[in-house]
Every structure is written in structure tokens, then in C-alpha cells.
Design a protein around this nucleic acid. Structure first.
Lengths: 225, 225
DNA sequence: GTCTATATATCGATAGAC
DNA sequence: GTCTATCGATATATAGAC
């Protein structure tokens, strides 16, 4: 049964409260992990109270899942924003890689949530069919670009779209996910704004160079394809 | 003042107990994160009791730091085991990349501890000068290989050793750190034994291809160097 | 929908006998 | 060094007035 309709002002107040809670929860979970996050602390970051968090979301775990779905929705939007059809395969691949790099490095909370989710073996993510189905679509775009590149004779044919997505994500994720241990050991902050342009170009170079058909060059071994 | 000497059997029993605790703690912290790990659960995984954990290590945090130092020591050993001097620059670079890939994918607990440490902004790692100093030495080896490659005219000169280490680590770490979310979304287990050889070759190809001086090839943009 | 107060459970850490 | 029992703090979740 549907809930009784409410005056618009009350409805939008409720929606605003839920948004407020989601943003505070995103910050708290990203900062402290699932077990480390405190519902009291989330409530303190909002304009409302702990009682309302349980009223709207029911439990700490359900709130965490809502946070996760919102974060993954941002990645979907970024990916669907890349226009790839009008570019050469190499240019299109570069655009996709650089856009992913740009998104992940400017949304550190998303990346930290992914790390946290992996600590828990993606048990919450698996329960959200929306996240899985929508985000898997990234592969379709990549496949079209790779197919064109292979047909044109410029790309090697033995690396598939999931592998390429893996390489791109690995580079982009590492910057955020391992920022602190990397800086502690090597003294370099990978998210330093002064490095941004060089690293954005580097991920583009890396992906395109790896896909290029380099049978003429010396790769330090005999090519497999 | 030194502790009074003890009969060897008691000493080695004590050492064995501490090792036992360290291994159980590694598994528990890697599986559940710092806040999620339970000292009671660690005790249950050992042949001894919770009281002995506090007797030997003093606190949950100090135990975690000991676990972290032990894990990083394993990486040091792997890196120092690669003989690079007798190989060509491309071959040496490939060996270093593949050895790192091999280590990280066969030591998932290490990688999960690194993820956990990053969630906490490397605050424990920073307090261990041993880890920082010893693990930073990986850069020296890489620098020598790169210098030889640039001098021979086969490597581009504008990518430094820390960047290369970053690319290698990113690929290797991603396999373990994002294994579960990646499988949940794309249906591919990156640590599937059937993919091991192909991925090991891919990280080698990726690093060497990126470093190669490809001014003649079309990378989808004009080269910066 | 919103507040204060509190139930219930759990966990890190310790006491004290042996 | 090793055991059982337990303290004290803190966290999730809820009760009940308004």
C-alpha cells in the first residue's frame, strides 16, 4: 500500500533530510570503513538526529548500501559522457582512460568505498542488481573501440575489453586507494595537482601503447600474437 | 635491565607463541579491517589465549603494527631477489614487473592490509621507519634499469622510476585489492589461475610498451618528449 | 517527523589465582 | 606463562513523549 500523499513542503523536507543523511554517511563511511564508522558521528554531521537515520534507512547496513549505490551512479554518469564514436580508436581509447582517471581522482570517497567494499568481499554490492547491471555496460563501449582498432590493423587482437578496463581502473584507482602508503614510503603525493596533467597523459600513453600492434619492436620477449 | 635468561625450551616456546599470534592476527586483520578485527577472534585462532596477546603485544594497535611490519618485510625479500644487472633494460623491467605481480597476487593478505592502512591514512605505517626506509629502496634498482634504457636510446626519458613503480604496483595491487567488486560487476575473477600467465605477460608488455620510445607510432596525440 | 533517554550487546582490556 | 571471569567503555538500536 502506498504511503498517504503529503504536502509538498513536508515531502521535500523529507527528501532533503535523506540527502543530508546520505552525504554525511558517505563522508563517514569513506573516512573510517564500515565497522569504523559511527552512526552517532553521521547524525552529528547532519542537521537531523540519529533517530531519523533509523527512521529513513532502518539500519547501519541499509544506509551503507544506499551510500554505495549513490557513489556508483556517479561513475555511470562519467562513462556515458564520453563521446567515442567520432574519434579514431587510439583517440577514443585515450579519452575513455583519461576520463576514468579524472573521475576517480576527483571522487576519492567513491574509491575509498570501493576499497572498503572489497575488504568485505563485495557482499553488499552483490545485493544491488542496479549497480552491477548498469556499471557492466562500460564494457560494451570499450568493445566497440577495440573492434575498430583491430579491424584497422593498429591494435593487437589478444587483449579484450575487460582486460583494458582493468588496466585503466588499476591506474586510476591506485592513485586514490594507495595514496597514503605510497606517499609515506616514496614521498610523492600522487594526487598533487602539479602531477595531474602528466599522469593523465601517462594513463593515455600506457593504454594506447599496450594495445598498439608492436610486433616490430623489442618488448623483451617474443610476442604471443 | 635485561630480562633474566630462560631455559631454551621456554624461550622458543615463547617465540613460537608470538609467531602463532602474528599469523592469526594477520588473517583476522586482513579479513575484517582494523576496527572489524576482534581480539577474541584472534585468540580463538591461536593455541593460546587473549591474555597472552596483551602480555606479548600490549594492545590491539601494537599487534596490528607488528602484523604490518611482517607483511612489508615479505615485499622487500621479493624485490631483492630479482637479478636485473645481467639483463637488457627491457628484460630487466619486465622481470621486475612480473615478480611484483607474482608476489602481490600470491600474498592477498599483504594487499588487503595495505588497503586497510590507506583507509586509516597510513597512520600506523608512518610510525615504522623500518618499513619506509627499506621499501623505498625498490626505486634505486628501477632507476638503474631506466638509466641504461634511456642511454641505449630504447626508453623515453620523461618517465621516472617512481612513476614506473606506480604503474607496476597499480596493476598488481588492483588484482587483489579490487578482486571482489570487479568480479561482482564484470563476472571475471582476476585471480583465476587460468588467467595468471596471460596477466603476467600483460603487465610485462604494458610496462615495456609504455617505456619504449615510440615517437614514430601514432599514440593518438603528439608526443611530449 | 523530531527530540531525549535508555535498553541491549559487544569488545578491548585487566584482575587475580595458579 | 597460562587460565577463567569480569570490568568499563562504547556502539547499535529502540522506547516513548511531543
Amino acid at each position: 500500500m502506498e504511503p498517504a500523499p503529503q504536502p509538498r513542503s513536508v515531502q521535500s523536507r523529507s527528501v532533503a533530510t535523506q540527502q543530508d543523511i546520505l552525504e554525511a554517511a558517505t563522508a563517514e563511511f569513506a573516512a573510517n570503513g564500515y565497522a569504523g564508522a559511527r552512526v552517532d558521528e553521521i547524525a552529528a554531521r547532519t542537521r537531523t538526529t540519529k533517530r531519523m537515520i533509523y527512521y529513513h534507512y532502518g539500519s547501519k547496513e541499509a544506509l551503507y548500501l544506499a551510500v554505495l549505490e549513490r557513489a556508483y551512479a556517479g561513475v555511470r554518469m562519467m562513462e556515458s559522457g564520453v563521446e567515442v564514436g567520432s574519434l579514431t580508436p587510439a583517440e577514443g581509447l585515450r579519452q575513455l582512460a583519461e576520463a576514468t582517471y579524472e573521475h576517480h581522482t576527483t571522487h576519492p570517497d567513491f574509491m575509498r568505498l570501493v576499497s572498503i567494499e572489497n575488504i568485505h568481499c563485495a557482499q553488499h554490492l552483490k545485493r544491488s542488481p542496479t549497480i552491477v547491471v548498469e556499471n557492466a555496460k562500460a564494457i560494451t563501449t570499450l568493445e566497440a573501440v577495440l573492434r575498430r582498432g583491430v579491424a584497422a590493423g593498429v591494435f593487437r587482437p589478444d587483449v579484450d575489453a575487460i582486460d583494458v578496463h582493468m588496466m585503466i581502473s588499476a591506474f586510476a584507482c591506485f592513485h586514490v586507494a594507495n595514496r597514503y602508503t605510497f606517499e609515506a614510503i616514496f614521498g610523492r603525493d600522487m594526487l598533487d595537482p602539479g602531477l595531474q596533467h602528466a599522469h593523465r597523459r601517462l594513463i593515455g600513453d600506457m593504454v594506447v601503447a599496450t594495445l598498439l600492434d608492436l610486433r616490430g619492436a623489442n618488448l623483451g620477449h617474443s610476442p604471443a600474437w
